[in-house]
Amino acid sequence: MELAFYLSGGVAVLATLGVITGTNPIHALMYLIVSLIAVAMVFFTLGAPFAAALEIIVYAGAIMVLFVFVVMILNLGEGAVAQERLWLQPRTWLGPSLLAAVLLVVLVASLVQGGAGQFISGEPISAQAVGGLLFGPWLLVVELAAMLLLAALVTASHIGRRPEVERWSESKGRRPGAGRGKGNGGGR
């Protein structure tokens, strides 16, 4: 398991480097997906298979798809690649990487001080345990997140609504207005 952890961790680091240095946006996104899958593998080796699966389903499988989707529609050509090249000059990345290096030093220092002598291992945490935690001690957070999502849903539904005149595709069907709004109401 230790070997798997270091392997997937290394893959994650390399893939993330690829995201930063890649000039083609789609290739960069591809690296990001690989990086997310690698992080999922890290979770897996640490004994959190539920978190690993969710990482892949939610991040790699859903959110990144939307990213790729949008970048695909933007139809970026050679110009975007050239612009990305321009941004990869040292004076552009020197500042951020210095700051990131400071953060890395802090991280390593705290790891060495606090976590020395600990090994990578752990009991697998089952989905049941995660659920128990979520709906036990952390119930309030879950509820707050649900409220936030509900608000986002209502907003999206409102923005996505079109005036009745434009809805020719719906009104031409056999069921004028049927099922509209019920999709949101039924599940809540």
Partner: peptide, 14 residues
């Protein structure tokens, strides 16, 4: 796997 089903969903996502 004890996350069997989720694994399928993850692969379907990929």
């Amino acid at each position: 796997l004890n996350i069997g089903l989720l694994f399928f969903l993850a692969m379907a996502g990929i």
